[in-house]
Design a protein around this nucleic acid. Structure first.
Length: 283
DNA sequence: ATGGGGGCCTGCCGGC
DNA sequence: TGCCGGCAGGCCCCCA
C-alpha cells in the first residue's frame, strides 16, 4: 500500500474535487472491506458536505457537515479513482463500476470518487469528528514523522532498551506513524544502518541521525508525488505517472548505488517482511 | 511489556 | 492463450 507519501498524494488529489462539495450519492457495493462498514454508511454519507480532508499516518479523514468524520485506509492495494471532471452541470458520463470497485461517491459537482481495492485490506469507518483522535485505529499511533513531536530526543527515548531490529522498530506504527516497508528500507540505506541492528544497541548519534533522514526521504517522495509501484495510482487515476527510483527496495542482486561501494544489494526477511540493504555500506 | 508469527485477500510473475 | 508456488506497499490479533 501506499505509505505516508502516497496517502498524502492521494489526499491532495482528492481535496480539489471533494472539499466543500456535497456527496450527492453514495453507492456502497459490499458490506465491508477488512472490517464491516459502519451501519447505514451510505445514508450517513449522502447529502453531507465535505468540510475538509486531513491525513493522519496512512489514514485519510474527511470531516463532514453532519459532525461525523469518514476514515479511510487504502490497505495494500486500495486506490481512489476520480472520474468525471467537475466542470459543471453538463457532462455526466461515468464508466460502469469495475471489478473491485467497492464504494462509489458521486459529488454534487459531477466528480465521481471510486474506492477500488482488490485485496480488500482497506477500511472505512465513520466516527464523531469531536474526539476522532480517540478512534481505536488512531489512538495508539506514534507521532507524525513530519511533525514537531517527532524529534531526536523522542526517538532515542522510544528505542532505548528495545531488542527488536531497527527495521522492525521503524515499521512499528506506535513508534512513528506512516513509514512502510519501502521507506524504512530506503531510510536505513541512507542512514547507513544495517536493518538487523538491535534498536536499543544503536549508538545515540546513529538514532539521532535517523530523524532528519526520515523527514528528508518522506519529503522527497511527497514532492515527487508519491512513489509509483505497479498497482499504485494517484487520485486522478493516472498509473505510474511518477517513477520514483529506489536505492535498495526491490533491488536484490544489483550493485549498490553508493559511489565507490562495491556491495551488492541483499534481501533478508525480518518479521516476515523483506528488508533490502547493502551489507557493505550499511553497518 | 515486547517480539514474532499467522492471517486476511487477490493478482502477478517466474519457473516448470 | 497452462499450472503452481511464492511474493506483494498493512496491520490486527494471538501466543510465548
Amino acid at each position: 500500500m501506499p505509505e505516508l507519501p502516497e496517502v498524502e498524494t492521494v489526499m491532495r488529489g482528492l481535496a480539489p474535487v471533494m472539499t466543500d462539495q456535497v456527496i450527492a450519492k453514495a453507492d456502497v457495493r459490499r458490506d465491508g472491506l477488512r472490517w464491516p462498514f459502519p451501519s447505514d454508511m451510505a445514508a450517513r454519507l449522502t447529502g453531507q458536505r465535505v468540510l475538509g480532508l486531513r491525513r493522519r499516518s496512512k489514514y485519510i479523514l474527511a470531516d463532514l457537515s453532519s459532525g461525523e468524520t469518514l476514515l479511510l485506509h487504502l490497505g495494500m492495494s486500495g486506490r481512489m479513482l476520480v472520474s468525471g471532471a467537475p466542470l459543471g452541470v453538463f457532462h455526466h458520463s461515468h464508466p460502469a463500476p469495475a471489478k473491485h470497485d467497492h464504494v462509489v461517491l458521486d459529488m454534487a459537482n459531477g466528480a465521481r470518487i471510486t474506492f477500488n481495492d482488490a485485496r480488500r485490506f482497506g477500511a472505512m469507518d465513520l466516527m464523531q469528528t469531536a474526539g476522532a483522535d480517540a478512534h481505536a485505529l488512531l489512538a495508539a499511533l506514534g507521532p507524525e514523522p513530519l511533525g514537531n513531536a517527532f524529534d531526536e530526543d523522542y526517538l532515542v527515548a522510544r528505542l532505548a532498551g528495545r531488542g527488536t531490529p531497527i527495521k522492525t522498530a521503524l515499521l512499528d506504527q506506535h513508534v512513528v506513524a506512516g513509514l512502510g516497508n519501502i521507506y524504512v528500507c530506503e531510510v536505513l540505506f541512507r542512514a547507513r544502518i544495517a536493518p538487523a541492528r538491535r534498536a536499543g544497541d544503536l549508538p545515540q548519534p546513529a538514532v539521532r541521525s535517523l530523524v532528519p533522514v526520515i523527514r528528508a526521504v518522506l519529503a522527497e517522495a511527497i514532492a515527487a508525488g508519491g512513489s509509483s509501484l505497479r498497482d499504485y495510482r494517484q487520485a486522478d487515476g493516472e498509473l505510474g505517472y511518477f517513477q520514483h527510483s529506489f536505492h535498495v527496495y526491490d533491488r536484490a542482486g544489483q550493485a549498490c548505488v553508493t559511489p565507490g561501494c562495491t556491495g551488492v544489494i541483499e534481501r533478508l526477511v525480518q518479521a516476515g517482511r523483506s528488508s533490502f540493504h547493502c551489507p557493505q555500506c550499511q553497518q
